[in-house]
Nucleic acid binder design. Structure first.
Lengths: 149, 149
DNA sequence: GTACAAATTTAGCTTCTACTAACTTTTAGT
DNA sequence: ACTAAAAGTTAGTAGAAGCTAAATTTGTAC
């Protein structure tokens, strides 16, 4: 068994490891929408007392029809409840997801701010980044915040 | 025009601003796949001399059929060229995208490493994060790297 | 309490990304 | 040169997320 084979094997292992990373990113995408929705539903309930399709539609920048579609799916997945023509509520599962999601979002945003990024950019970028930050990285962010705070 | 209206207006403006952020994240998603592919094609050409469907398939963790599909789309969008049963090449546009994409990827990865995140996590997270980091944030990352380096 | 406006829902369509299974072409071994 | 394996392609399917347009329900102003 020569070097060539070892190299080939090494490459194969490498490829599999990287494939796993891409898979994780793809999986993250599937939960991103769910996280954005439940986070927003939680915010709206706190701010205005209820979460309506039209509010989600405005804040997300998609049509009401799209919101409706997605809410159906989230209901199917046990994250929200809603009766026809009534506003939207979070299930326990939904509340938990909203909570961890929000915590992550804030950590990322505060971290970017602490790093010297301007407020608008920090808010905008954290929206995209929050879904792709693992717990170890979040912990590194928190550590930085403690030191710089 | 009382406080109530001002608040309502303020909320509407706020909603629009946030909607813009979500829109940006959604747009980023559309280019993510393209960026991952061209970056990988560039890597493979450098490492092995050519980029084949089967290699992309292995590294991305998707089937060859999926790679084929996507390559068609990238070709349609002018990022790659490929003749049937032949390996894949980047266009000038594709090379440019691969280059900026790779630079961003490395900046994010090196930044996470400098922050104390372990190598595996840095590699995995940077894969997800790289597509959502704006230029100002990247610049803040670079600045941190210069200071800590 | 009726009519109108606002909100919600439904129907039908598109694009993207993924899959499996079957097929064709190319490459490599003998 | 032939055959088998590897690589690439095609066809058909599915689900997610978006859209527009039309229908329906709810809420409100008079």
């Amino acid at each position: 068994m020569g070097d060539e084979m070892d190299t080939a094997r090494g490459r194969a292992r490498d490829a599999q490891r990287r494939a796993e990373q891409f898979r994780r990113v793809r999986d993250a995408h599937q939960t991103e929408v769910a996280e954005d929705y439940v986070e927003l539903v939680a915010d709206l309930i706190e701010e205005t007392g209820e979460a309506r399709v039209v509010d989600l539609s405005e804040r997300l920048g998609v049509t009401k029809a799209t919101v409706n579609n997605t809410i159906q799916r989230l209901q199917r997945d046990g994250l929200v409840t809603s009766q026809p023509y009534r506003s939207i509520f979070l299930t326990e599962k939904g509340r938990t997801l909203a909570e961890t999601s929000r915590e992550r979002h804030h950590t990322v945003r505060d971290f970017l701010l602490a790093l010297g990024v301007d407020a608008d950019t920090a808010e905008a970028d954290s929206e995209g980044i929050e879904h792709h930050v693992s717990e170890p990285t979040l912990e590194a962010f928190r550590k930085f915040l403690r030191k710089s705070g």
